[in-house]
Amino acid sequence: MSKPKLDLLPVELLYEIQLFALSRYLPLASRKLHQIFKSAPPSYVAEYIFLRTSTKPGHVYVKALRYPLCSLNVLQFIRILAEKHSVSLTPTELPRRLFTNLVPRKDGVPWNEQDHPLPFIRGLLAMGFNVNANSDGGYGLVKAVQSGFAPLVRFLLDNDASPGYKDDLAIRVAIRQKNLSMVKLLIERTDRDGSGSRSVNNRNKRRRLEDRVKVTKDMLKIAVKCKAQDIVEYLMNEKGCVPDMQTLYLMR
């Protein structure tokens, strides 16, 4: 007599089994099980993630957001569960998974405000989460710069992301890409009107905003090595960066 197959059990019973087992392998046991759990409602997915994350030390929301299953809809239900267990909305890290697949576009279509992960991060803010734009040593900003995702770069900067992490890695990436507009975006602070200055004492006089990072001789040297002449001129003429002897030799 053949043994009964697990995937022949009622869906509701399978859900209960999984909430008891909390197994990451059960949905992979067969194609049918995979489809069953893939089609699970957000409330169930939220309960599964919450049970897995709340049993481990550390911030529940940080761990929950690492799950690819954790959509904004699922997160709404996780928040309901968390509030029942008195879990507070502490500062939340942005998981690497949001940025890992960002690469330069080959189709020539510019990035826009609706491209992933911008709507997701905006949704987190709308839900009241205080996201840390410098999560994982500024990984998100570097990936956004690398992919040329200017709206995301601007959004992260507006939410206190610092291009100075890891020895100005984001800026060095932009320089190597010979992307002057991106270099300026990373270095210079701009007011909401995009002028790069702000009014003082409600008068017409305006004061230049302080740059996000200090331009370094190393940045200039990289620009010279990459033959990014427009960036070289910007760093020297507009930012007053003086080349060292080695960089002068390379400029000959």
Rank of each mutant, 00 (worst) to 15 (best):
R203C: 10
P151D: 11
G137N: 11
V60F: 11
K221E: 13
L19K: 07
E16C: 10
C241Y: 01
A64H: 02
N101W: 05
P41G: 02
R66F: 00
R24M: 04
P163W: 01
I187N: 09
K166W: 01
L14S: 05
K3I: 12
S135K: 07
I121D: 11
P95Q: 05
Y25Q: 10
S199H: 15
D136N: 13
Y165T: 10
G138T: 04
L248I: 13
A29T: 14
P163Y: 03
N132Q: 12
G128A: 04
T216G: 04
V224M: 07
V173S: 06
N201F: 15
K38D: 11
F50K: 05
T53F: 00
L6N: 02
L9H: 02
K3V: 12
R192H: 11
D218I: 11
L152T: 03
V109G: 00
G138V: 05
P42W: 01
P95Y: 05
R122S: 10
H116M: 07
I171F: 07
S197K: 14
S147P: 06
E16R: 13
Y249A: 15
Y234K: 00
I231Q: 06
L51M: 12
V11P: 00
D244N: 15
G148T: 12
Y165D: 08
T247V: 08
L157P: 09
N101C: 07
L209Y: 06
S30A: 01
Q76D: 05
I49Q: 03
N237R: 11
A40S: 15
M127E: 06
V11S: 02
G164Q: 10
K166H: 07
D7I: 01
L22E: 07
F120D: 09
N130G: 02
R66W: 00
E113P: 01
L89S: 03
N101Q: 12
V103S: 08
G140F: 09
Y25P: 00
Y67Q: 00
A228V: 06
R79V: 03
L180F: 04
L65C: 14
D167H: 09
G108H: 10
R189W: 02
L9E: 07
E188Y: 03
L65W: 03
L9Y: 00
S195M: 14
S30E: 02
V145H: 06
V183H: 09
R97E: 06
Y165L: 15
A228G: 08
L72A: 01
V183R: 06
V213H: 09
A161G: 11
S162E: 12
R198D: 14
P4Q: 03
Y44I: 08
T90A: 13
L69M: 06
Y67I: 00
A228E: 07
S23Q: 09
V224S: 09
M251Q: 10
R97G: 01
M251K: 05
S162T: 14
R105Q: 12
Y234F: 15
G148W: 13
E210H: 13
E238C: 04
Q177A: 15
Q146S: 14
Y44C: 01
E83I: 09
K217W: 04
Q146T: 11
K221M: 08
A133I: 09
V173Y: 13
T190A: 09
T190W: 00
N201W: 14
M245V: 12
T55H: 10
